[in-house]
């Protein structure tokens, strides 16, 4: 079985997210470009270093409400701006997650 057949499908969901390095107080804003069960690629104006551990909160729309998924992840790649995308991007590998009810962000 090759890598392509085992890779988690990436979904082009345009979700808002917030993230911060573990232990940091300040949250940064980002926008998901694609996401799977194991990783997320998002655009942001604020880069952090590769290998940095980060907390990520994803806002998931559910009918008229929303739920928040809180993830622990590791930055695995930075993506330079290109074409018409003016913001750089970060790819993060999700190690664990939990659901948090309610639409209040961090």
């Amino acid at each position: 079985m090759n890598e392509a057949s085992t890779r988690a499908p990436r979904l082009p969901l345009k979700l808002q997210l917030r993230y911060r390095p573990v232990g940091a107080a300040r949250w940064h804003e980002g926008r998901v470009e694609n996401i799977s069960r194991s990783g997320v690629l998002f655009r942001t104006a604020d880069l952090v270093a590769v290998d940095e551990q980060v907390e990520i909160t994803l806002l998931i729309p559910v009918q008229l409400s929303a739920s928040v998924i809180v993830c622990r992840a590791r930055i695995v790649r930075t993506i330079l701006p290109g074409g018409f995308e003016k913001r750089p991007g970060l790819a993060a590998s999700i190690s664990r997650y939990r659901f948090r009810r309610g639409k209040d962000g961090p």
């Binding site: 988690a8 979904l11 082009p12 969901l13 979700l15 996401i35 799977s36 069960r37 998931i60 729309p61 559910v62 009918q63 739920s67 998924i69 993830c71 999700i94 997650y97 659901f99």
Partner: peptide
């Protein structure tokens, strides 16, 4: 075809299953 709750949530949103 989901393997955990996170993936289930993402699939559900992507396929607008809950609208």
């Amino acid at each position: 075809g989901a393997s955990n709750r996170l993936e289930l949530a993402l699939f559900a949103v992507h396929h607008r299953l809950l609208e």
